[in-house]
């Protein structure tokens, strides 16, 4: 589904290649500062790269408008931010960006819709970020330590939600420091040197 070949951004990664199949989760691990976040951002087309080709379902990224690419390959930041005053308005803002997609139910990961976003904790903001990404209905999720601020139960809920979501033909790359995550998700692990 998502294919990248020879993606390079020195000094962090050089000639990185990955084939991500539909329904698959790849867990990306590596030491701090090894460029995991930069790689996800590069795949999401949020940062430029020096070399390499990226494509989605055989269509090169260069043939797609940037917004079209990012609608289908959504990057979830590790530290989330508020987009609007309430959770409902926050999700509505995302919905405005993809009006052609049929609206689906809000993910159970979302904090209460009428909650004020300024009152959300770090963990709740991370749940909102995940709910927001799922609400955008992409084909691929690029998750940058999306559960780092969640308690254990909430983290397991988030993991289960993403696994369930990929079973519908979607795919995800999940950056983590956690050694057991790949096994828990039943995912392939890739290390960034």
């Amino acid at each position: 589904m998502l294919s990248c070949r020879g993606v390079t951004r020195r000094p962090w990664f050089e000639g990185f290649s990955l084939e991500l199949e539909a329904g698959e989760i790849v867990v990306l691990r590596g030491a701090s500062g090894s460029g995991k976040t930069l790689l996800l951002r590069a795949l999401a087309d949020l940062d430029p790269v020096e070399a390499g080709e990226v494509s989605l379902a055989g269509v090169p990224r260069s043939d797609m408008a940037p917004c079209e690419w990012r609608r289908q390959v959504v990057y979830v930041h590790q530290e989330s931010v508020r987009l609007a005053r309430t959770v409902r308005a926050d999700l509505a803002r995302i919905r405005e960006l993809s009006p052609q997609v049929q609206p689906s139910a809000v993910s159970p990961l979302s904090p209460p819709l009428d909650a004020l976003t300024e009152n959300l904790s770090g963990g709740e903001l991370q749940r909102l970020a995940l709910a927001r990404a799922l609400h955008a209905e992409p084909r691929v999720l690029l998750l940058d330590e999306p559960t780092s601020a969640l308690d254990e139960d909430a983290a397991r809920d988030a993991e289960a939600t993403v696994v369930e979501w990929t079973r519908c033909g979607h795919a995800a790359v999940w950056v983590t420091h956690e050694a057991e995550l790949a096994e828990r998700l039943g995912a392939r692990e890739v290390r960034l040197a």
Binding site: E68, V74, H77, V81, L83, R93, I94, L97, A136
Partner: peptide, 16 residues
Amino acid sequence: RRKIEVLLAHGATRSE
């Protein structure tokens, strides 16, 4: 910039 990047990351155009 973080907020703008989150919007871009969800498919917003530069103007949006």
